[in-house]
Design a protein around this nucleic acid. Structure first.
Lengths: 340, 340
DNA sequence: AAATGTTATGCAATCGAATACAATAAAATA
DNA sequence: TATTTTATTGTATTCGATTGCATAACATTT
């Protein structure tokens, strides 16, 4: 049976005061065994559930944290979310998820939930809103950035080193003998795109390979857009023999374009992606990519946020986790078939 | 500047009572233009944000709805979520997302948020918890099921007709001349698996094809598990020439198994999936599948929930939306390449 | 036995916004 | 002008749980 009762009802039925009922729930050791059992019996019998909003109101704690993802349809984030959620639940917090749909305005709107005291803290997996606003909010409320970040911003951040990862990915292609290496970037308003581009450029320059400007193509974060950009690259007079692509979904788009042009991956064009999505080990050819420790990024970010919520100050603010180059078929480094 | 101020502070600064400030916010037409502007000026100047928990406490409305997905890593749900969220936001509600991780216990835990008045209503995209409990809760709180459902349960539901869809999918293979048609099912504790199996059986029987019991293999909802089941099917003395698979991710697993066995899809084994994920049109061979109107399922479910929350009674409780067979390469019905 | 300490419980204030009701001023009507 | 109606604002209560403080009951020490 479900009955909407309040604490005073329980108190009456158990012949105690509401204070005692409240203590039974939150500090049972303060209550004698007898009363505790008497109260618990009533609570169980009527399946009393405390009115959480009233409790939140009184205690000024929601025990809720807000996570904002740039795009919920991007498979990358689900594992980061798992990491966040597990760490949160283990510490008595629940998670609200906000989908910004790649819109900085919506991102900003979600931060209002903090100002309105609907959440005790916030993990942002996207950082595209106004930097000043963000800084402002983080000065007053617990906040952690993960995956994305803003240079020079004094907000705790968890991510990999995208520049060095991108360098690593590009160098992998260089070491395979490629010099005509293109890069399909993500949108330039996203820091990850800019950093991965930097890494690409660093790798090329440090190996004395001049970068053909036409080899750098900016794409939306989507299969289709990347497909189009790859088609452009293939249409060049001297098409690249290798491409480093912003992420795995886009790498699949690029590969499809190569295939549809009657060419072969990796023989005609070698491809390296980023993120190591599940799909990347399944797709054919399966994709050489940079592995991100997604779950760990999430749980680390939540760990930091919990510290902030508990009033601790973080001596270390920037956490750079280890990535890893995962070599598979699409870059042509080996020909072993990977079976699941 | 971010300052934590309360309504009484605004009232003092604007030289009015809190009642007036409250009215400016919720029923501005009740306040004279002069005072309204005076109050709004203060609100804007100090960026006052009302304490939502206090408001929720007072009004007994959270303007929040809870959505529980069986598995957040399943790409199928992200578009359903979009549908839900858009409809919710358009009506002034926000969405909390719960990930049950395929665990009926966690599903049940999330329903407690309703009992604790943390949400005004609930959309369940999974229905595996105890039926009695579920019915009980839905008798006291607004609740809608979507995608999954429970037969004979009097809770508003939005979904497709999985039996007829599965029949359609199987018949597609039959019409292509196949008789040795296998079915890789999902877990039998999920109603969708049972219904799709039923559809498969109906199609076979109505075309006088005897079902080889070994042709029915139960699989987890994962690429890997489906791969294994397909391997089993191929190891049979008389392997099937066609397979209808529970969903698209699993269909990819099955296709991979066929390929890894040195066989061709669709020539040696035709494959049909379910859901029409984005990936299904990208994978090679791209996958013949049943399209579900994901976004519409979500928005319709939210629409119904809003009606329940507003106290309307639904005359129609079961909403069956239209699915569609999408014929692509994996079933061998045509050989046209589909480019994005 | 008196004084002191300990434990268990209750009383009553409190959190911040919404709102029923009262009060007042201004406008409309008789 | 007196009276009623309408518009605007304020006063004071309320929502349900938590918690500081007071008190009562009991145990321990001197």
């Amino acid at each position: 049976m479900v009955i909407k009762m309040k604490m005073s009802d329980v108190a009456k039925l158990a012949n105690v005061s509401t204070a005692t009922v409240s203590r039974v729930l939150s500090q049972p050791e303060k209550v004698s065994k007898d009363t505790r059992e008497k109260v618990m019996k009533v609570i169980k019998e009527f399946n009393y559930q405390p009115h959480m909003v009233a409790r939140q109101f009184r205690t000024k704690e929601t025990k809720t944290i807000l996570v904002v993802v740039p795009d919920i349809t991007d498979a990358f984030f689900s594992e980061v979310l798992r990491g966040i959620e597990h760490m949160a639940v283990r510490n008595g917090y629940q998670v609200i998820l906000g989908d910004a749909e790649n819109d900085p305005k919506r991102e900003k709107e979600y931060t209002n939930l903090l100002l309105q005291r609907q959440a005790d803290g916030m993990v942002l997996l996207t950082a595209r809103m106004d930097q000043q606003d963000l800084e402002n909010i983080s000065n007053h409320f617990p906040m952690v950035l993960a995956c994305e970040y803003i240079d020079g911003l004094d907000v705790p951040t968890v991510s990999i080193d995208n520049i060095s990862s991108a360098r690593k990915a590009t160098e992998h292609l260089i070491h395979l003998g490629h010099t005509k290496i293109a890069h399909i970037t993500g949108p330039m308003n996203v820091v990850l795109s800019r950093d991965r581009l930097k890494g690409y450029q660093q790798a090329m320059l440090s190996h004395d390979i001049t970068i053909n400007p036409a080899y750098i193509q900016e794409s939306e974060v989507s299969f289709e857009s990347s497909y189009d950009q790859m088609m452009k690259l293939l249409a060049l007079e001297t098409p690249p023999t290798a491409v480093f692509v912003f992420n795995d979904e886009m790498a699949i788009g690029a590969i499809k374009a190569v295939k549809d042009s009657g060419l072969n991956v990796p023989k005609d064009v070698a491809v390296v992606g980023f993120d190591n999505l599940k799909m990347s080990s399944i797709y054919e050819p399966n994709i050489t990519t940079i592995h991100q420790p997604k779950y760990e990024i999430g749980s680390k970010a939540m760990e930091l946020l919990l510290k902030l919520i508990n009033g601790e100050t973080l001596q270390k603010k920037r956490f750079v986790l280890n990535d890893k180059l995962v070599v598979r078929e699409s870059s042509g480094a080996n020909n072993k078939k990977v079976t699941p």
